[in-house]
């Protein structure tokens, strides 16, 4: 059924399109869906991705910037020469497909374990940290005047948000308290420079090919804030997938990441990056606890959610390694 709807929609803006084929749901919860499909046209087929909130799910919850803003950001990134898919069409009410957009599909891998282990990425791995530094610098340099309306965040607000969310769970976690205490004591305050922050710059949202970074996806958590946040989040141990001595995604060093960033003409503040790494570690821990809440209270009573709840202790050991390292 979605293929018929997509076919009608695509025919209205894609010259020579005769239909769509191979529509398959990729991921997402109840309020947001990602579909892959192929557009058939006289010249062959073009891979496309639909990202949408189905009809009836309009509003974006809490921190999300909204699908319209995501589409604008991806197109701006594409136009600036960053690895980002071209936005082909923003959904209109007459499309009957809900809110969202259709973009070019970029082939490649997003699964961290494959990127870190498969032979086909062996040549890409040593380049990734530097490349991602350059990409992050490009994102942080997008002209503020052309950006959509986004929420503004700073470290002090983020600490308060995390604390409120964690206390809402009603279950004491001494290590989280220690981390909150550390974050308050080391809060660098608002950044001198406010830029666009991707907000979820890590494995899973990066399309990697044998040649390196091909696309940055999922701008849902984009906001204005401290650019060092993206670099700190990328270094969180939870995204190293066992390669714990390579702080950048399990494939590279901070030095390479920072060198790439500065090569693109921007400055790194390593203390702020470290601060955001601690914040990010706690944030992922709080998110794991949130998964457990959603499992218990519904609507997502799934096995995966339940088991992610038991991963919050991983962030506790990582917080202790950051804040109270044991002498070796």
């Amino acid at each position: 059924m979605i293929e018929e709807q997509l076919g009608r929609c695509v025919a209205s803006w894609y010259k020579g399109a005769s239909g769509v084929t191979g529509a398959a749901r990729l991921s997402g919860g109840a309020s947001q869906e990602t579909w892959t499909f192929d557009i058939i046209h006289a010249g062959g087929v073009t891979g496309a991705i639909l990202r949408r909130a189905p009809p009836g799910y309009g509003a974006s919850p809490g921190r999300a910037c909204g699908l319209d803003a995501e589409a604008v950001l991806m197109q701006l990134a594409h136009d600036a020469g960053l690895p980002s898919p071209r936005v082909l069409h923003v959904l209109q009410p007459e499309d009957g497909l809900g809110a969202g957009f259709i973009m070019q599909r970029i082939e490649g891998e997003t699964i961290a374990r494959k990127i870190l282990r498969d032979e086909q990425f062996a040549k890409a791995r040593p380049m990734l940290a530097r490349q991602l530094g350059q990409v992050a610098a490009g994102i942080h340099s997008l002209p503020a005047l052309r950006l959509p309306k986004l929420r503004e965040m700073n470290s002090t607000k983020e600490i308060a948000d995390l604390e409120r969310e964690y206390h809402g769970f009603g279950r004491p976690r001494p290590v989280f308290e220690l981390a909150l205490r550390w974050l308050r004591a080391h809060d660098p305050g608002p950044s001198r420079e406010l830029t666009l922050v991707h907000g979820d710059f890590r494995h899973g949202n990066l399309v990697i090919g044998p040649d390196g970074v091909r696309a940055v996806l999922d701008w849902e958590l984009a906001h204005f804030g401290d650019p060092m946040e993206d670099l700190g989040w990328l270094c969180v141990n939870s995204w190293r997938f066992g390669e714990i001595d390579k702080p950048v995604g399990g494939f590279g060093s901070r030095e390479e990441l920072f060198a790439g960033y500065e090569q693109a003409g921007r400055k790194v503040d390593p203390d702020r990056v470290k601060f955001w790494e601690v914040m990010g570690t706690l944030r992922w821990g709080v998110m794991c606890c949130g998964m457990m809440q959603r499992f218990r209270q519904g609507p997502d009573h799934s096995l995966e959610r339940a088991m992610i709840g038991r991963r919050s202790s991983e962030t506790e050991i990582d917080l202790l390694r950051l804040l109270a390292p044991r002498e070796k």
Binding site: V175, N237, R311, S313, E314, I317
Partner: peptide, 16 residues
Amino acid sequence: TTMDKLAVDQPNYGSY
């Protein structure tokens, strides 16, 4: 306490 939790939750976790 944290080591005892990891021994149950995720004994293959790299940091542990």
